[in-house]
C-alpha cells in the first residue's frame, strides 16, 4: 500500500477501533440519555471509518473495499493509534480517552477540511462538525467528573492517568505523513500539539484537575505494534467474516 493509501488507512483505523469501543456501551451506560450520546459518537466514528477505509481501498487499487480492510487484516496490519484501542474501563476512563482523542480529531479535521485533495477534504469537512461536538461533550463530562464528588474525581484522575502515555503518539510524524502532505492531503500533526495542550489544560483547570505527570510515551500503533487489547477486539469484530469466508451479509 502506498503512502497516501496508508494515510487514509490510519484515519479509518482510528475511527473504526474507537467506534467499536464506544458501541460496547450501548444498553449499559449510566443513564439513558448518556447511552444515546455515546451511541451518537460511535455512529459518527463508524461513518468516518467507512469513508476513510473505502478511500484507502480505492487508493490502494487492489480491489479491497472498507469491509475487506476492516474485517480481514490481522493486528500487525492495523494502523490505528494506541489510544483508541484502550479498554473502556469505567465511564471516566472512556471519557478520558474520548477527551484526548476528540480534541486531536477536531484540530486535525479542521485543517484537513481545506486540504487540496478534495477526497480527504470532503470527509474531513463532514467529520469536523461531528468531532467538534464530541470534543465539547467529552470536555463537559471531564468537568462534571473532575469537579463532582471525591469518587468521580479519583476515577477521572485514574482514567487520565491510564490514557496519558498514548497522547504523544497522536502528534508523531513519519514518512507517510510527509508524503501525504506533499500530496496535498496530509496535516502537520506536530504543529497541532501546542493548541491541543492549551485546550486540554483549559478544560483540566475548569475541572479542578492537574495535568498528569510527564512520562515515557508508548507508541507504535501506526506501524502495527499494538497493545494486547487489539487482538481480542479484532477476534470479536471479525468473527463472522473469518468463520464464513466468501459469504456476503
Amino acid at each position: 500500500m502506498d503512502a497516501l493509501a496508508t494515510y487514509a488507512l490510519r484515519l479509518g483505523d482510528d475511527s473504526l477501533i474507537l467506534g467499536q469501543r464506544l458501541s460496547a456501551w450501548c444498553g449499559h451506560a449510566p443513564a439513558l440519555e448518556v447511552d444515546l450520546s455515546l451511541a451518537n459518537v460511535a455512529l459518527d466514528q463508524v461513518g468516518q471509518a467507512t469513508h476513510f477505509l473505502n478511500l484507502a481501498g480505492e487508493l490502494e487499487g487492489k480491489g479491497r473495499d472498507g469491509d475487506d480492510l476492516a474485517f480481514r487484516r490481522d493486528v500487525m496490519d492495523f494502523t490505528n493509534c494506541l489510544l483508541v484501542e484502550q479498554p473502556n474501563g469505567d465511564f471516566a476512563q472512556t471519557i478520558a480517552r474520548q477527551f484526548l482523542f476528540s480534541h486531536y480529531q477536531a484540530l486535525l479535521f479542521e485543517q484537513m477540511a481545506v486540504a487540496k485533495d478534495a477526497r480527504f477534504a470532503a470527509i474531513a469537512a463532514k467529520a469536523a462538525k461531528e468531532v467538534a461536538y464530541h470534543a465539547t461533550l467529552a470536555s463537559d463530562w471531564v468537568i462534571r467528573l473532575g469537579d463532582g464528588t471525591d469518587e468521580s474525581k479519583a476515577r477521572m484522575v485514574a482514567g487520565l492517568d491510564w490514557m496519558w502515555r498514548f497522547a504523544d503518539e497522536l502528534f508523531l510524524m513519519d514518512d507517510v505523513d510527509a508524503a501525504a502532505i506533499a500530496a496535498g492531503a496530509g496535516v502537520d500533526k506536530a504543529a497541532l500539539r501546542a493548541t491541543w495542550d492549551a485546550r486540554i489544560d483549559a478544560v483540566l483547570a475548569e475541572a479542578t484537575l492537574t495535568r498528569p505527570a510527564p512520562r515515557r510515551a508508548t507508541a507504535g500503533g501506526r506501524i502495527g505494534r499494538h497493545s494486547e487489547h487489539l487482538g481480542h477486539l479484532l477476534s470479536d469484530m471479525q468473527f463472522l467474516q473469518r468463520a464464513y469466508p466468501g459469504a456476503t451479509w
Binding site: E33, L36, S37, N40, D140
Partner: peptide, 20 residues
C-alpha cells in the same frame, strides 16, 4: 423531555435524543 442536571447537559441530551 429529558433528564439532566443543568441547562448545558439538558441541551446536550436534547440534541442527542431529539435531533438525530
Amino acid at each position: 423531555s429529558v433528564h439532566a442536571v443543568d441547562g448545558k447537559m439538558a441541551l446536550e441530551h436534547a440534541r442527542d435524543t431529539y435531533t438525530r
